[in-house]
């Protein structure tokens, strides 16, 4: 009985999570501007439309380029920042640590507006590049937190030991520091990418003439809905799911390779 209740509970949760996504897929298969179910005519016309439009590609490319750049910059800056917090004791460290996290508590539309005012005060024309900066303001603290958790959990004497055993600084980074940080870098990078990829409130204010995927979806849903909107949303979702799967597959293959090499060496030693 308890087991059945548990299964029921899980099913309810899964249904609640996935029905909205499923309904977008269903909506994309209609050929009418009005969301009504069941469809009178099923159609994949929205998808052929979406694929034939140059705009679909452009939207994805803008979002991808913003998210990729945000991920890269966030990883580099967050690693350096986390090092500064975890490794060194300096005056004002704890205040700085709190100040860095503060942007997370700002409502994003307010932060977006503030950044827009800031850019125009500096005379910078907003474009996807300013959006990268805006995303970083909000995403960097999160990635810094994720990576510093990893850094706090390990003994920096390992780096001294590596140096003492003959490793150069670069070798120490490659052989000791990075392998330790890797899980933090991967989860931090995933966070950065997905938070940027799906961000709407910051992008609205700071992309200027460029349009990211969420911005376009939002404006078309609000003012000019057609099934092609749902179709592009589905394509965008599949693209990020694919991205996630690629990362997971890479991790799985790496882990398998590591296990094979260690079990191979173990079998040599017992032979």
């Amino acid at each position: 009985m308890k087991k059945q209740l548990q299964a029921l509970w899980l099913t309810v949760i899964l249904v609640l999570l996935y029905v909205p996504i499923l309904s977008v897929i269903l909506a994309s298969l209609a050929n009418t501007r009005y969301m009504r179910f069941p469809h009178r005519n099923w159609s994949i016309g929205a998808y052929t439309d979406a694929f034939s439009q140059q705009e679909t590609l452009v939207l994805h490319l803008v979002s991808l380029k913003v998210a990729a750049l945000v991920t890269l910059l966030a990883l580099v800056l967050a690693t350096l920042g986390a090092m500064a917090f975890a490794r060194y004791d300096w005056r004002g460290r704890s205040i700085y640590q709190k100040a860095v996290v503060l942007p997370i508590f700002f409502p994003q539309p307010v932060l977006g507006l503030a950044l827009l005012l800031f850019f125009s005060a500096l005379g910078i024309t907003p474009s996807w590049k300013t959006a990268v900066f805006a995303h970083l303001v909000w995403i960097l603290p999160i990635v810094t937190l994720v990576i510093s958790i990893r850094l706090f959990g390990y003994d920096p004497a390992q780096e001294d030991a590596a140096r003492d055993l003959g490793a150069t600084r670069l070798q120490t980074l490659r052989e000791v520091t990075l392998p330790h940080l890797a899980p933090g870098l991967i989860s931090g990078g995933l966070f950065a990418f997905l938070l940027s990829w799906s961000n709407l409130p910051l992008s609205i204010f700071t992309t200027g003439a460029d349009t990211t995927l969420p911005e376009w979806l939002f404006s078309r849903v609000a003012t000019n809905y057609a099934p092609v909107v749902s179709a592009i949303a589905v394509i965008g979702t599949l693209a990020s799911v694919l991205f996630g799967l690629v990362v997971l597959a890479a991790l799985w293959m790496q882990r398998r390779a590591a296990r094979q090499s260690s079990s191979a060496s173990a079998s040599i030693s017992t032979a």
Partner: peptide, 14 residues
């Protein structure tokens, strides 16, 4: 070469 107080073994390695 040095043996450290915390030993500082590389704990992700064999």
């Amino acid at each position: 070469a040095m043996v450290f107080q915390s030993l500082a073994l590389f704990d992700h390695r064999s």
